[in-house]
Structures are given as C-alpha cells and as structure tokens.
Amino acid sequence: MTAPVPAGLTLHNLTVRYGRKSVLSELDAGPFPHGAVCAVLGPNGSGKSTLLRATGGLLHATGTLMLDGVDLTPLPRAQRAQHCLYLPQTLPEPVRLSVLDAMLAARHAIGRQGNTSTAADIDAAMACLADVGIAQLATRSLHELSGGQRQLAGLAQALGRKPRALLLDEPLSALDPYYQQTVMALIRRETAQRNLITLIVLHDLNMALNQCDLACLLHNGHILAYGPPAEVLTPEHLRTVYRIDARVDTGRDGQRFISTAGVV
C-alpha cells in the first residue's frame, strides 16, 4: 500500500525577503483543506499579502509549497497560475477596456485554452459576471466604473480562470455591505461546489468569525494561531496581534460579534 497523498495546500519552511529584509522567515502554514474558506488575518504590514503573493508565485520565495502532494515551486509562472491563482489587493487600472474584454483578456492571457469558440468564451465570461452580480456592466469600459465595480470585475476575472486554489487579497475592501455579503456567499458557494482551496485576506473580523471555516492569524511574520475562527479570534489573541481591547459575544441566533472597546 502506498501512503495517501496529503490533500490540500501546505507551505513549509517559506522564507520571503524584500532586499535584505526578510518579511516571512521559515514559515509553516496549513494544511489548508479543499472545500473550506480560510480567512488570513493580521494587522497592516504583518505579511498577509506577502504570504499570498509568494504562494501564488508572484514573489521569489524559498521553501516548499505542496498542492495535493505536488510541489508547485519549480513550475513556470503560467502553469502555476492554473493551479493556484492570486487576486491582487490593488484594483484593476481604469483603462479603456470593456469589462467583457477584460474577462476575455484574462482568459487568454497565457494562450487560448482549448478549442473554444468566441461565443462559448463569451458565455463563460458572462456566467462569471452574472455570478458576481455585474452582468449588466459587461459592455461598460473599466475607466467609467467605480472602484467597487472594478473590484468585482477583477474578482470575476479570477473566478473565470477556474484554478484549484484561490488566493484572494482583500476582495471585499471596496464593496458596500450588500456586495460584501453576496460576494462572500458566492465565494463560499464556489469553494464548496468546486472543492476549491480558498484563502481570503480580511480586515472584517466579524465576517471572518461567522462566514469562514478556518482562520489563520499572522503576527510578526509567523502564524500565531490556525484553526476554527472561534478558537483563533479570542480576546487574548486580538490583544496581542491587533492591540485592541475586544470582546466576543454570541447573539440570539448563534452569530458571534466582536466588539471593540478601545486600543491597548
């Protein structure tokens, strides 16, 4: 009998430097399982983006990155993005390109995939836009859209590429409460349906607490806690990591709330 291949995404001994300064050193994280949404939490500058960018292959990192038992680090850029797709924290630039064109460009960025016809490409792109809730913006140009609308277009681009692991860097940062909820629901649904590994950077702790399956708390370049959100987001952890004085309450319908009394 062979040993079972470990499923999920595991980072081992990951070190990332900017110049001489190392932001993450010998970090171990995971395993992040399939079908679960994992919140990546931590204060500004704690290395969340760095962690996700290194995982997505945008930054040079030493260490290993196993996805379902296969090391991703030696793969070329294009192939790596097929497995593990990073969604940047910055919004798409407001250029003279329609939302649909942007979707098609993202689809063909690393060469035409398969022998799909233009009509099929358009249907697939439109389905993604409809999922995200902006099908009506398809023919509008990115330079005429609001920041939040562009963020949704960017998210649709990433979802349209159908990777096995999604690394979302603050995908809700520019969205109103309605879209925050719908997008989060969409991400949960896609993750469950397509059995994705989803990492999502959030600053909304209540969202992480109630809508994510797992949470991973970064502190000074290492992982302080990883597990179910209720066990990770404790008042003690919030105090050490975020330097806030916070309380966790449970509402009548089982929802949890973090309320902040002040800073420490």
């Binding site: 797709l85 390109l97 460009a105 993202a106 690393i110 681009q157």
Partner: peptide, 20 residues
C-alpha cells in the same frame, strides 16, 4: 496582444493571471 492587454490592468494582475 492578450498578455499586453492584461498588463494594462496592472502589473500585479497580469502576473497573477500567469503572465511572465
């Protein structure tokens, strides 16, 4: 042409979509 188009939306975005 396609990779250049994605590059217009930001260098990070192009890179994240797999463009070298």
């Amino acid at each position: 042409a396609w990779p250049l188009t994605t590059l217009r939306m930001g260098e990070d975005r192009a890179a994240s979509l797999g463009v070298d």
